[in-house]
């Protein structure tokens, strides 16, 4: 058990430290790197409590895909390192907005946690944990039976978000030549090359 707790404290200290660094670090790139470190250590904590599927999915989805996009955006924006920390600087325009948002989120959390009700037969379904079925099977058994509607709805919401993002960024530009791969591949010398006889001292007229 000692080794277990040593690893627990190791990962949780890294998680807390890096999440603090995310919000205090001056350079945005470093923030993203610490965010990734945070995700990884939380994933390790998940694995330690036996939720191996959740831990791996956290790594694949958040670290492998979402954080890469974060990093992309931050690198492309090329945000300069802030010379002054945000609470000393003269233009502290972020503070009111930030306060409003965080108070709102706090209120929402309070409402949600306050109104929390467990499912009626939660004890009977949690006994699954004791049996020797693997973690992934257990999740599947619950997700595709009791919570199938919510699961599908979450998928639809994600799909909507994707369609919305595509719609927002999609614009049709006029006057842009489009490449047709089929035409490019199916070109042959007989249609692409034309042989002309050129008389000396006279050019040849190419019309197309």
């Amino acid at each position: 058990m000692i080794v277990h707790s040593i690893f627990f404290y190791f990962f949780s200290i890294i998680a807390i430290f890096s999440s603090l660094m995310v919000i205090t670090s001056r350079s945005t790139i470093n923030s993203v790197f610490f965010l990734i470190l945070d995700f990884i250590s939380v994933g390790c904590l998940f694995i330690m409590v036996g939720a191996e599927f959740l831990g791996m999915i956290l790594l694949i989805v958040y670290v492998g895909a979402v954080a890469v996009l974060f990093l992309f955006v931050v690198m492309m924006l090329n945000v300069a390192e802030q010379k002054q920390s945000w609470f000393i600087g003269k233009k502290s325009t972020h503070i009111p907005t930030g306060l409003i948002v965080s108070v709102l989120i706090l209120l929402e959390l309070l409402v949600v946690v306050g109104g929390w009700k467990y499912k009626e037969d939660v004890m009977s379904s949690s006994t699954l944990v004791l049996s020797n079925i693997s973690n992934t099977h257990q999740l599947g058994l619950v997700m595709y039976t009791d919570y199938i509607l919510y699961f599908q709805l979450a998928g639809v919401v994600l799909l909507l978000a994707m369609i919305g993002a595509i719609l927002l960024t999609f614009r049709e530009r006029v006057g842009v030549k489009k490449q047709s791969y089929l035409n490019q591949i199916s070109r042959s010398p007989s249609t692409a090359i034309e042989l002309r006889e050129v008389k000396s001292n006279e050019g040849v007229k190419i019309d197309d």
């Binding site: 191996e52 791996m56 790594l59 670290v63």
Partner: peptide
């Protein structure tokens, strides 16, 4: 011999992109 071996492989290979991004940036 872990239960989620495939996911582990997939996760680690998806992390591989970081070395390249970090080096490039």
């Amino acid at each position: 011999d872990i239960n989620v071996g495939v996911l582990y492989l997939f996760a680690v290979s998806s992390l591989g992109v970081y070395g390249i991004i970090m080096g490039g940036w």
